[in-house]
Design a protein around this nucleic acid. Structure first.
Lengths: 197, 197, 197, 197
DNA sequence: AATGAATGAGTGTTCATTCAT
DNA sequence: TATGAATGAACACTCATTCAT
């Protein structure tokens, strides 16, 4: 069971093991011994790579969210129209979550509980990620696609709220259905709030 | 510090103490000893009233959400118009949360992490609470206030998502501003998605 | 289940409850609360009748063994011949144990573990009980039925050892067979050790 | 007092410490902390070697009885005559008990109380140990030394009963005299029960 | 780079017992 | 005679973390 021979170096093995166990059992119930055993090395060795258990919890989504940021710019590149960009953002984000549900579970369920979440690299990176939405809404207003008096921040609240609700529900229901079920309809409904009449 | 003389019986004292400490420090970091000391009795005495720490965690929001359900019906009674009802629901809910931020914190931040959350009384009560929204959206569609093809479930996803996002952000930011800031504008924006043109 | 209405006074109800529970689960695993619940009263009330749990453990077999002593004299009265008396002793003793297996279990399995057993009334009463055997063996030697050089103490060691072994085995095997199985043959074999040739 | 430097590895140190304390104070009254302190290490370290307190209780006599079995065959080897073998068995057994009174105390006083005793490796090993006696009695009958109609099982009941009674009495009296006092006479008396006339 | 061995500090929970009423 | 309420004192067991090798 321990993925001793999986490709990737030791550090990655540890991350993957921790990710899996955190997602499965939660942060508190997962022991360092379980993680190291799963990673195929000793507990002591784990401390050569990470400062401790909490460090591990914070590192995992940090890597993931960093990647997301890098990816997002490229994804939105060349897309014309604010609604199209909005749609792209949503579909892209959910695709990434579907591809990395363990990371998502950690961010959405376990990290928010952590007292230090707000001081986290992850938090500020998520803020960066979500700041793109402000640009999109502003572009929509400027271009006339969206309401002329649209407040981008309020618009974003609705967008993120809806999106995160969809994700959280899916995670809590153990990813037992497709994240994209009814997405089209819900999106169409939501954007009507932004659309200029 | 221990509220030995606070009104209410012992059981309530324990609940209030636990609520406060869970909300302040999180479930895991709070010890049974702290709770009992805060409640002004011995650790052993606490076990006369609750089966244990987890029982306490689950009981607290259970009581709160049960009350909410009782209250909601009355609050919506006599209100005319689906948009008015929607508005009432939102304002009422946020008011209740503002009044009981400790309960809210437990439900929104700590309970969802708990592996057993989905099997909880709280979860099913929240579902009941949110089922009222379906009725409201259906009424809106029927009455012609809302789009004739409005799917109440998708509409609700947006509504709950937005609402919970507002609440969660507020809780994570340590309730440092008013929950009602910008609420009017955000609500107005959101309901445009439902409104028949 | 609690035998609130059983005949006998409260003290007896407590004894019977304790006896049952000690025998079923052992002394250590039985709690005072279980005993008092079984007896149909509160924990605190139990302390009106007994000094505590250990007092209870020691009282139970004390009563039983006291009764045994009273009975034994009568049982042996009028029996002629030392072998007949020996036989009577054995059959009588096993009958009493069969009738009161709970008491027997407590004496044989739980009391011996107790650090204070040797200072117990029970211990000295058992000594009295077993002292009758010395008389019997001496009578046997004097009468010529038994070996002229028979040492009553060594003879008794064999008798008691055999008897207690039979009892202990039966108790450990959960009284799943008759205590009298093969008793006749074993007795006949044993007494050949005493018989004068 | 802690035997940190005693020869033997850590596991053995723990066993010896536990053995001593169990025998002195009983199983229940001995705490894990006492055992580990006596062994010269931390409580937590003890759990690296044993699963817990009960595991320790069961392991101790397990090792001892296993050794006994290995030894017995060798001890009986080369001895001629069933009475001689019987005598050897008794003397050997008591010698072993005299050498390891702590183990004996645990087996005779504390283990039998344990609810799981009958499912124990120790129990089945003791059965093996005692099965040799059946062979001896059968040999005695066949060779003519013993009664032609001697039932080996009944004979063994007397033998084991007597032997265990001698041991138990000695243990309860805190090993304050020699286990071999009067052994010769008692043995001679007992075997007359088996002897063919 | 890796680990066997060890531990300090905790942690929830149990339970016999007491006492005011 | 009875008890509801309370508690002091334990206690077995866990686990993240350290360090000599």
């Amino acid at each position: 069971m321990p993925n001793k021979n999986s490709k990737g170096n030791t550090k990655n093995r540890i991350i993957e093991s921790a990710k899996k166990l955190f997602a499965e059992q939660g942060y508190q119930k997962t022991t360092v011994m379980e993680i190291s055993k799963q990673a195929g090395l000793s507990e002591a060795a784990l401390y050569e790579y990470f400062q401790g258990k909490e460090d591990l919890l914070l590192t995992i989504p940090d890597l993931w969210v960093s990647e997301l940021i890098k990816d997002l710019k490229e994804q939105l590149f060349g897309i014309k129209g604010s609604f199209n960009k909005l749609r792209k953002f949503l579909w892209w984000y959910l695709r990434r979550i579907e591809e990395a549900p363990l990371d998502a579970k950690i961010v959405y369920l376990f990290l928010k509980t952590n007292a230090n979440f707000m001081d986290t690299e992850v938090y500020s990176n998520v803020k960066i990620l979500y700041s793109y939405l402000i640009d999109i809404f502003e572009e929509g207003r400027t271009s006339g696609e969206m309401k002329p008096d649209l407040n981008p921040y309020f618009a974003r609240t609705i967008f993120i709220g809806t999106m995160e609700h969809i994700v959280t529900r899916w995670l809590l229901k153990d990813m037992s259905y497709s994240l994209f079920d009814n997405l089209e309809d819900t999106f169409d409904l939501m954007v009507d709030a932004y659309r200029s009449k």
